[in-house]
Design a binder for these strands. Structure first.
Lengths: 218, 218
DNA sequence: CGGCTGCTTGAGCTCTATCAACCCCCGTGG
DNA sequence: CCACGGGGGTTGATAGAGCTCAAGCAGCCG
């Protein structure tokens, strides 16, 4: 977990007294890989905390295209955005692997402020960082720089979960490209000796050079 | 100002007592068109309120490419994200036309909570909506749907400021396309009798049909 | 009127999606 | 232990969307 990873640091850690309180007043949920927590259009029912696992916020279009919007690993919370905005969920949350999460049922923002006031500053910071990250990605989409986006996505995903075996499809869903493009780019990067493919796994040989390579594109 | 514009509603209005207080403890700034309020990399110095005018949050890449990230019209505040995240500004704010804004100097989030606690719920809601909007745009970038993005951008920009004469370049900067593409798409839309070009101005003849047209793409 | 900025249009090119065939790895069951 | 099946990955050929470059036009201001 690289603290310096510019796009990775979207979480502000909670004091242990707060997490303890959260686990006390929440309901434990065991999820199998592929389980949905909520789906697009659902009304917000509270906030969820990841005790252990990996949850993805994913958007699907009619044509079946997926977009990986955010990822929640250990100690992350999610569901806060829709609850606060008082909007139906704009995307789906799905467990990428078996996970244990805690559900804190809340009706709305007032309820949140009443129940867990100590978390508000943390949520403010988290939302702010999530917004920056989203806008940075937005900027990256202008022009055609699939290679740069794929490199940054790869580093981000690895940063979020280094154990999980990210598929080419998932990297594509996050970077806004297709699986085949990811494959081609990875092959190019391997030729440049920046990464190494070991079976289906991708080994980043030189993160520095990789990022530099990404920045020299455009 | 269409309340139903799904991507336009990123502001929650403040009670007049709050705005009054804000104007009392802030410093008035008169901006000429093209003036910067802050630039990328600057450290946050507080929060800004738009009394009158139109401010854009813009990101530039080395190659000079611009991305319009957010827009702040009358009654909007900006600068909150970086202050709360305690990060240098990730983009520039520039006055699109002569504007009057108020600057409330603040050192950090604690300072904000101490000085103006009544605004916190509002900021939470605003950040949440800004995040949704950004992520919706992100999703729209997957695949090549320049036409749909241009239509939505056009409606959004008009929704934010109906007087201001948006240029093709600005529509491109917001939708992630080039000026020439915007021109071509607008010509196509005019042929479809969905809009009308009156000099440099763009008249939306049928917003409903326009959105429907956008959704039939992909 | 000139000049500037913004807009339009065309031709060509590049990048990436798409389609398709094939391979590799791994787990399962006979 | 091997056969087989399926999901993920690779690679090639092709097409199309949108960018780039370039030239010219239109609206607007001094």
């Amino acid at each position: 977990m690289d603290i310096n990873c510019k796009i990775c640091s979207t979480i502000a850690s909670l004091p242990s007294s707060t997490t303890k309180k959260i686990f006390n007043i929440s309901k434990k949920l065991d999820l199998k890989k592929g389980d949905f927590v909520y789906q697009e259009g659902d009304l917000p029912k509270g906030i969820y905390f990841v005790k252990n696992g990996l949850i993805a916020l994913v958007n699907y279009s009619k044509s079946g295209e997926e977009t990986l919007l955010r990822l929640f690993g250990n100690q992350f919370f999610f569901g806060h955005r829709s609850l606060i905005a008082n909007e139906p969920h704009h995307a789906n949350t799905i467990a990428l692997r078996d996970s244990t999460i805690y559900h804190l049922p809340l009706a709305n923002l007032d309820d949140l402020i009443k129940t867990l006031p100590e978390i508000i500053p943390n949520i403010l910071v988290t939302l702010s960082k999530e917004l920056r990250m989203s806008e940075q990605r937005l900027h990256d989409y202008h022009g055609q720089r699939a290679t740069a986006r794929i490199i940054e996505s790869l580093l981000f995903l690895k940063c979020r979960d280094n154990q999980y075996k990210w598929t080419r499809r998932e990297i594509g869903d996050f970077s806004g490209t297709k699986m085949e493009t990811v494959t081609r780019v990875l092959s190019k990067l391997e030729q440049e000796d920046l990464i190494e493919k070991r079976g289906r796994e991708i080994i980043v040989k030189n993160e520095e050079k990789l990022l530099e390579f990404a920045s020299t594109i455009e």
